[in-house]
Each structure stands twice: as C-alpha cells, then as structure tokens.
C-alpha cells in the first residue's frame, strides 16, 4: 500500500469517526464508550497475524499473550455493551 493511500484512508476515517458520534445523547455515553472499546479489540486480527508467523520463543510467547488480551478486549467488550443495552431495550418494550 502506498503511503498516500494509507493517509487518505486515515484522514477519511477520522471524519467518519467524528461524524457518526457527534449527536449522541448523554444517556448513551457509557454504552458508546464501551462499544468503541470493543471495536478496538479488532487488534486481535493483528495479534493473530503476528502470532501466525512468529518463529522464536520470545515472539511466540509475546504474540500469544497479545491474542489472549485482544480476545478479552473484543469479546468481553461486546458482551458487556450488549448487557447494558439490553436493559434499555427492556424499558422501551414495557412502555
């Protein structure tokens, strides 16, 4: 990938990131933070990529730790966010 292509992706992503959350209500700050937190658990993909080609003992152990940590971040993040939002939904349903 060329540096220019990466820069383009980066800058456009910043604007999309700003735009999608700019109108969030206070009520949803906590779930949104938690959901965004789960999304950066996607580092799991990176951890798997480096673990897959690790050859030395040091590289393997560090990357396997990274896989564990990233999995906790991703899976735990999505589950806890869902639990929070489940409560909001229950409330709406009983109206």
């Amino acid at each position: 990938m060329t540096t220019m292509a990466i820069l383009t992706i980066f800058v456009l992503s910043i604007f999309v990131g700003f735009e999608v959350v700019s109108k969030v209500s206070t009520t949803l700050h906590t779930p949104l933070m938690s959901g965004a937190n789960a999304i950066h658990g996607i580092i799991l993909v990176g951890a798997i990529l480096v673990a897959d080609k690790a050859t030395t003992g040091l590289e393997t152990s560090l990357s396997i730790i990274a896989v564990v940590l990233a999995t906790i971040n991703m899976v735990g993040g999505f589950v806890v966010t869902d639990r929070m939002l489940e409560m909001f939904k229950g409330k709406g349903g009983k109206k």
Binding site: I14, G17, I39
Partner: peptide, 10 residues
C-alpha cells in the same frame, strides 16, 4: 482511527 476519532469527540 474510527475509535480514535469518535473516542476523542466522546
């Protein structure tokens, strides 16, 4: 980047 940008706004 999405998380970085939206997290900053948040």
């Amino acid at each position: 980047t999405l998380v970085g940008a939206s997290g900053t706004i948040l």
